Amino acid sequence: MNQAIKWIPRGYSGGWTKPLTSPVLGPEYGTSFDMQVLKEDGKYRMWFSWRPVNLIGYAESTDGITWTLPRVVFTPDPSSDWEAHEVNRPSIIKKDGMYHMWYTGQMFPGNETRGSSAIGYATSPDGITWTRYNKPVLSPEEKWEGISVMCPEVHWDEKHNIFRMWYSGGEMEEPDAIGYAESSDGIQWIRHSSNPIFVPDSSKFCEMKKVTAGHLLIQEDWHYMFYIGFDGDGRPSCCLARSKDGISGWERHPDNPVIAGSDGYWDHDGVYRVSVVKEDDGYSLWYNGANYPYELIGYARHEGFDLGFDSMPERNDGGYRGVLNLI
């Protein structure tokens, strides 16, 4: 019998903390994952993927921790040939008094043989009642996109009057890399010629298998992207990178992953997609953590605005904390 030691991502780094020991949404609602949080007039609004009912749910909070009873706001279209089975992974912005949502529509989710994922679009005057555009606005076409485009992240660029989308493509269960596209109306999208614009770094074990589900924080001269990195064993954690233009010249955080699962807690098996809100004194972050078979939504906090790219030395252990004995 042989024994080896393997480094695995544990806990948090880069100035982030997990102030709570339990999730803020779940487990009484079943698996809740891949959320979008907006803060409006002192109130937090969360749209989240609700796996037991295959749709998008909604909840509100005054502190980002205690949430109202979730309600259903967006369901699959049973007559559709591309979003009949599940809708999830919303990206929502408010522009000119209207809410705009891009989301993932799926057929046979989790099935790598029959399944497919595409990105849809809907609008709403209040974020509750939605009118969908009945065709997908982005479907897998390029070789690297495989059978799935999903996990849209959309921002409105006021300076250039365009919508900017970062999205993931590849396999059905978890896509493999991140692409970029632009649109003048949110419906017709032009892919970037250098797609995928963000791929796994084989020299970093914490993301050597896949990178996916980018969430962008755009401020000052930087595009900060929080993304899921899958290590060589398929374990997910939240990593961070930055780029001047959000397309090229990506610089990984020296202490990746910044949020990972914690031993003995509800998020033990890993951390998936996040949503970040800039506060007056730092950042609030929501993430879906896994303790299989459940995924639930948790909360993390960063005091101050220095995200640590220039002030922290690079770790010499590949970005991993803790050890796992393998027999």
Rank of each mutant, 00 (worst) to 15 (best):
R10E: 10
G15R: 02
T17Q: 06
P19E: 04
P23T: 06
V24L: 05
D34A: 14
V37H: 00
E60Y: 03
V72R: 15
V73E: 07
D81A: 10
W82R: 08
N88T: 13
R89G: 10
R89M: 13
R89N: 15
I93Y: 06
K95L: 15
H100D: 11
W102A: 14
W102L: 14
Y103T: 11
Q106L: 13
I119D: 11
G120I: 05
G120K: 10
Y121V: 12
P125I: 15
I128H: 08
T129M: 11
N134D: 14
K135L: 12
E145G: 15
C151K: 08
P152G: 15
E153S: 15
V154A: 12
H155D: 07
W156M: 11
D157K: 13
K159S: 12
M165K: 07
G170A: 10
I190E: 11
H192P: 04
S194R: 09
S202F: 13
S203Q: 05
K209Y: 06
A213L: 02
G214I: 00
L217G: 00
D221G: 04
Y224M: 02
M225Q: 03
F226Q: 03
G229H: 01
F230C: 07
D245L: 03
I247W: 02
W250H: 03
I259W: 05
Y265A: 04
D267G: 00
H268L: 06
D280H: 03
L285I: 06
W286L: 02
Y287E: 03
A290V: 03
N291T: 07
D306E: 07
L307M: 15
L307N: 08
F309C: 08
D310T: 07
P313A: 14
N316F: 08
D317F: 07
L324S: 15
N325L: 12
N325G: 11
